[in-house]
Each structure stands twice: as structure tokens, then as C-alpha cells.
Write a protein that binds this DNA or RNA. Structure first.
Lengths: 224, 224
DNA sequence: GTCAAAGTGGCATAGTGTGCCATGACGGCG
DNA sequence: CGCCGTCATGGCACACTATGCCACTTTGAC
């Protein structure tokens, strides 16, 4: 697992395992993705999301409008693809790492692993995440597309869980598990970003743990 | 509260208190909304969402394209406005009905009240909800817009909670509360719709209670 | 009846999203 | 090296989405 040529690429994409053997084409695609994503983020910060057109982004990234849509299906997605960070670890868990403990805890452990990466070795990824979260505070269209993507991800994650757990988990449980983790992650990111803006130094992992325990205390204690 | 002229309008909109004194303008607007919403639902069921253009809907509803955008900002929203059913009861709770019990439970009680309406006196609203849920199973764009609206609603609901509870609830708790209830409602609607498709007869309220207890058991029991 | 406010439709225009096709680069193979 | 299937790109065309502007009508208050 010797990652030499890309000591974490500019965009802040997680350069975990997959950097192993990329063909030239794949590497160029990766480069273009980073170029587009990073150009878009700059433009969004400078002019706002609404005032930035796809043509602007494409020009700044050195590609044609037509090609833009072969990479992303909307301008908002260009900066929201950080959600992919969870995809590979999740797939690995589902294919080889399942234990017989509670599903929710296992999934949370996977996420904590990713967050720990962001707190530690993957600072530029975390910085990019922070810039995006800052934008999301003032850009409803980013929140909208983010909600869309989150939902789609939770939807398909639930299906994968049901399949991988082979009947031990109902679809309802899987859906709720996926959604609860999603809510937690989203909220943790918001809080983390807010705390950093206040001058405090918070970690993503720590913030997520706090959120987790808040969820716990909200749902559990009310005797009923 | 004598509702004479509209014994629950075609579209299935909740005709609760607000039907009291509507000016002519307001009533015509309501009528147009129902006309559009109902025409859109028919077209979506017949031709699919993607194949239905805004021009189609507008023509079917007897308005111009330009006017369409003064009612809804996308074709998907025309059928997803049922989320508004929760708005009035929620506002009433926040302005006059707050107790000092746990926030989550209070909000859940509000939602259960709405669901009970749908199970009982407001059958046509429930039927409309079911048609929409059926569409959502096969129409990703509807799910996408729905996720967008849900998120926006949760976002603003959290702000309102913080304000109304005047410091007794943190923003984080409010956000999580709003999101958890949202997740529960969404999941309950899905399950309810799925059960009806299976021939079982489920109530929205009962399904929601089941979801609620599943959330409870997912988050609480893992000792830790 | 008069008038301000609001709703409506038509027009123009910017931006979004996709199919189609020609061109050129990649990568395997003889 | 040179051939060729595969893939990525850019340009073009086209349909749809979305909004601003303006003229016209309706509503509702005086």
C-alpha cells in the first residue's frame, strides 16, 4: 500500500487504498474531478452559488459545458462529493467486516473511523469540508442538494444492509439505522463547523460522539 | 366551524380550522392549488414524472406556464405539499401548547394528532398520501425533492423550537429532535404504504408508533 | 365609481440537461 | 510500429426550467 505520487491531492479527496493502480485514464479523470470541484468551490465562495453558472465552472476548470455533465449532474454536486468518503469503508464493512453486534453500533464505528481520518492524517480534506459547511450555512441550494444526496445514500445503504445481513435485519430497522447515522453525521458536521468558527477547537470524532449521546438521551430516557 | 361549501375538497387538503373566513381571492387561490396539484398527480401516474412537463400540468389545470411558477417552484412540489398538514398544528403547539415535558415527546404528540386525523375523518387526504407514496417508490426525482423539503422543514422547525423554548433547548437538541421526528414520519409513511399494498390494513398512527418503538430499541438498548 | 393592490398571461431571456455525432486520445494486438 | 476497438471530449441542437418585465384584468376598500 505504498502511496507515492499523490500525498493527498489538492482537492482533499481521501487517497486511501484506491490510489494503488490507477490507469492513466482513471488518473486523468480524478484530476479533472479535483480541478472542477476546486474551481467550483472557489467560485462559490467568491460569487455565491446562484451567481455561478455551470459555464463559469467549466471554463475555470478548462473543460466544455458538455463535458461538465459527464462528471457531475449539477453544480452543487461538485462540492458535495465528500459524501463518497464513507462509501469505500462502508462497502468494506458490509463485505468483510460484519460482526454479530448491533447494526447501528457497527455502522457508527465505521463512520467514526472516517471521522478520525479527517481529524488526523487528512487535514486538507477536513479543511475542504469546513469551507463547504461554511457555504452551506448561507446557501439553501447547497443544503437542498445535500439533503437529496444524503437521502439517496441512506436509501441504498439500507438496501445493502438488509442484503448483507441476510434477513437478520428488517428493512425498517435498516432504514432507520441508516437515517439515524446520517442525521448524526450531518448534525455533527454542522456543530463542528460552528465551534471552529467560534474559535474553539473541536474534533469531528468528539463532536460526533457528543451528538450520538444527545440522540441517546433524547430517545431513551423518557420512561414511557 | 361550519364548513359548508367544501366537504373536504377534491385534492385532499386538510380543511380544518382555516376554512373559516377566506376571502374570494384566497378561496380562488386554494381552488387553483387543488386543481394544479390534482392534475399533476393524475399526469404523474399516467405518464411518469419525467415525461410530464410543467406546460402539461399548467394546461391541464387551465393556467399559463407563467402562473404555474407563482404557485409552485417545481412540478414535484405540486404533489408534495401534504407536508403542510403538519404546519398549522405545529405552530399552534409552539405558540400556545408547550408544556414542560420532553420536547421530543411533545412534538411526537402533535404529529400523532395529525396522523389520527388522516386515519379517521380525513380519508381522502390519506388516499392522496398513499397515491403519492406509491409514486415515490418508483420516482427518484420525487424522493429527491421530498428530501429537500423535509430537510428545509426540519431546519426551520429547529429554529422555531429554540425560539419558543426560550433557551431551555439547545440548537443541537432542537435539530436532532426535528430530524428524528422527520425520519420517523417518513419511515412510517413508507411502511404504511407498503403494508396497504400487501393487503394488510394498517393505520398511520399505529405504524408510526411501531417505528417510534423501533427507534427506541435501536438507540437505547446497546448498554454502553 | 374610483383607485390601489394583487393576480394573470405573454414575451423575452438566461440557464439547465441531454441526445447525437465527429474528432482525437488511450490501450491492446499483431 | 501501425491497426483498431473503446472511451473521453467538444460542438451543436433542442427541450425544459425559471425568472424578470410589462400590459391587462380582477378584487376589495374607500
Amino acid at each position: 500500500m505504498n502511496v507515492a505520487e499523490q500525498p493527498t491531492p489538492a482537492g482533499g479527496h481521501l487517497s486511501s487504498v484506491e490510489a494503488a493502480v490507477l490507469s492513466l485514464r482513471e488518473r486523468r479523470r480524478r484530476d479533472t474531478e479535483i480541478e472542477v470541484s476546486s474551481a467550483a468551490l472557489d467560485l462559490f465562495e467568491k460569487n455565491g452559488v446562484a451567481a455561478t453558472t455551470i459555464a463559469d465552472i467549466a471554463r475555470a476548470a478548462g473543460i466544455s459545458d458538455r463535458t461538465f455533465f459527464r462528471y457531475y449532474s449539477s453544480k452543487e454536486e461538485t462540492v458535495l462529493d465528500f459524501q463518497q468518503w464513507f462509501r469505500t469503508p462502508t462497502r468494506e464493512w458490509l463485505t468483510t467486516g460484519i460482526t454479530d453486534g448491533p447494526v447501528l453500533e457497527q455502522l457508527e464505528a465505521v463512520c467514526v473511523g472516517v471521522l478520525r481520518q479527517l481529524d488526523g492524517p487528512n487535514r486538507d480534506a477536513a479543511n475542504r469540508l469546513r469551507r463547504i459547511r461554511a457555504l452551506m450555512k448561507t446557501e439553501p441550494s447547497l443544503r437542498a442538494v445535500s439533503a437529496m444526496l444524503d437521502d439517496e445514500r441512506a436509501y441504498s445503504l439500507a438496501d445493502q444492509i438488509v442484503e448483507s445481513f441476510h434477513g437478520r435485519v428488517s428493512l425498517t430497522e435498516a432504514r432507520l439505522t441508516a437515517e439515524i447515522v446520517g442525521v448524526g453525521l450531518r448534525t455533527a458536521c454542522q456543530m463542528w463547523s460552528a465551534r471552529l468558527d467560534n474559535g474553539d477547537d473541536a474534533t469531528l470524532e468528539g463532536t460526533y460522539q457528543a451528538v450520538r449521546s444527545t440522540i441517546h438521551s433524547l430517545t431513551a430516557p423518557s420512561a414511557l
